[in-house]
Structures are given as structure tokens and as C-alpha cells.
């Protein structure tokens, strides 16, 4: 069984993540536009900031943490 590299759950179809972390990544991508417009920041800075906020959801924080070391070269951006 292929497992999510973030939490160890079974991966969702066509994804390297489980349904929750895939969904969290989708939300992260959608919201990046708002942050970029608001603060003129790049993807890496965005991940850092989102990761630090108390309001950020647990799965979003986990996927942000997972993506942070990959930097702005991440294919998942």
C-alpha cells in the first residue's frame, strides 16, 4: 500500500498524499494568490508565514512543513 509521506495514511488516487493532505495542498495553492497579491511574497516565504499562524489548519501546517525544505523549486507549487 502506498502511504502518504506526511501522515502514513493510504494515498489518494493520482496523488502522493492522502485525501486530507492532498486537499490541504489544493487549499494552499488556491490561497497563495491572495497572499502574493497582499504581500508580494514568493512561495517559500508564503509557506513560512502560513506555517507560523495559529489559525492555520493542522493538515495545512503539516503539508507546509513537508514542502518547506523543498524550497521554491518544488513541483507542487
Amino acid at each position: 500500500m502506498n502511504v502518504c509521506s506526511v501522515c502514513g495514511r493510504e494515498v489518494a488516487e493520482d496523488s502522493e498524499f492522502c485525501i486530507y493532505h492532498r486537499h490541504a495542498l489544493d487549499n494552499l495553492r488556491v490561497t497563495f494568490g491572495d497572499w502574493k497579491r497582499a504581500l508580494e511574497i514568493d512561495w517559500q516565504e508564503y509557506l513560512n508565514r502560513v506555517h507560523e499562524l495559529d489559525e492555520t489548519g493542522m493538515w495545512v501546517r503539516e503539508i507546509a512543513e513537508h514542502l518547506m525544505p523543498q524550497g521554491s523549486s518544488s513541483k507542487l507549487q
Binding site: 487549499n27 497572499w35 504581500l39 489548519g57 493542522m58
Partner: peptide, 12 residues
């Protein structure tokens, strides 16, 4: 809980 876990805050 899912909605909360999937939430991405937006700055203003």
C-alpha cells in the same frame, strides 16, 4: 474538524 484542519488563513 476537517474544515478547521484544511483552513488556510488569508491576511488583511
Amino acid at each position: 474538524e476537517q474544515d478547521i484542519n484544511l483552513f488556510v488563513p488569508i491576511p488583511f
